[in-house]
Design a protein around this nucleic acid. Sequence first.
DNA 1: CGGAGTGGAGAC
DNA 2: GTCTCCACTCCG
Lengths: 237, 237
Amino acid sequence: MDKRKSDVSGLPTGWIREEVVRKSGLSAGKTDVYYYSPDGRKIRSKPMLARILGDSFDLSAFDFRSGRIISSALRKRMRHDSSLVLPIRQTASIFKQPVTVIRNRPESKTKTDIKHGNQDQPKQLFWEKRLQGLHARDVMEDVIQSLELPRNVQGIGPDLTTENILQSISAALHLNSTPVLGQNANKSTLQKNPGVHIDANQPHIQQLMVSDEDIRRQELRVQEARRRLQEAMKQAA
Amino acid sequence: MDKRKSDVSGLPTGWIREEVVRKSGLSAGKTDVYYYSPDGRKIRSKPMLARILGDSFDLSAFDFRSGRIISSALRKRMRHDSSLVLPIRQTASIFKQPVTVIRNRPESKTKTDIKHGNQDQPKQLFWEKRLQGLHARDVMEDVIQSLELPRNVQGIGPDLTTENILQSISAALHLNSTPVLGQNANKSTLQKNPGVHIDANQPHIQQLMVSDEDIRRQELRVQEARRRLQEAMKQAA
DNA sequence: CGGAGTGGAGAC
DNA sequence: GTCTCCACTCCG
């Protein structure tokens, strides 16, 4: 069968994404994307998804086809004919605030300008640093310890904590529709001029090799964890 | 029961169409259409119908749901990108004949033109007159006499024979999905400028009133015919 | 009658 | 042009 199911990074847990290739007809070869809600309902479009999730979840940046959060969702709004659009400031943070529009050049010129370049909201290069000093705590108010990173995962940037690096990787895994690889430029180039050389779509780690040995070691770890879980469940039964 | 059976104007004689209304579930109120072949088989879809009729009957313009020939079936083909479509003349009678396409205006202009107005094949207003002088004959080569029309069925048009009027009514009953009423404009207006005032979707008769008395008289005639048939079958048995 | 699968109008 | 979304078909 030409189907694939997978978890969905952009939705609450329990949602499943399915991709079905059309096998015949005028649209043969095209794919349809479906979601299954935790209670098993099949969802065939974003409006239908919005109806089921209700106000509990903000879908404005959710891309139905890819199943990911796309910050460029904004781009769509900017394509409207500016003469028809209400005078609304076209940025995300204060979205829907009325503002005054002043037009003193031909409309077509204005539209051309808007089209150029990346329409995403600017992103701070090291936004993770704003979270430094904040900690999740358990019910006893004790700080929850962070994960440890493998030695070959090397952060790139000024005074990044292990948490910062994890935040950076986590955000990339959630937001990217392209592979998450890390920074391509070498460390000294990056430190000379981060504003120019850092790839803002990649996490702040050096690119690294994952060897067959790494994969084998991880498999063993998973097997061991499963064995212990099995043990624990036997004890409970 | 919510069923209706009727003859099918778009199929060879002997075929019966049935309409069944769904009574419950998510699709309550929707109807399913079935056909019964002359030998009693139940047909549930157009592909199944095509398989049974084989090449003997062209279903391309047959609309399964309504049971009628839809000349606008052509419209679908005309929407394709003209650059991808084989050079085929887009008219019904010689459909699928290769022809040469000459383009000497911008393609967008051509497409815009195609979109406007009715896409059905043009129809001669008085095509029935081309059949004048042709007669069905029985095995003895004698002309089969036409029906007589009731006095209140009045033809509208130049020198229409009784046969012409019957042909016109018959075609309308076969092709229309709307009620067959006759011409709405009055006779003198029509004769002044038929090209403007004739409704090509209606037969060439004046609209007429059918009274309760007409209906009663027709019922009596049918009852009499049935009685005579019953008589004849008794004689044969 | 349900539902997978496709068609196609409308949005972009 | 391409894509989205939902109505519809067809068969279980």
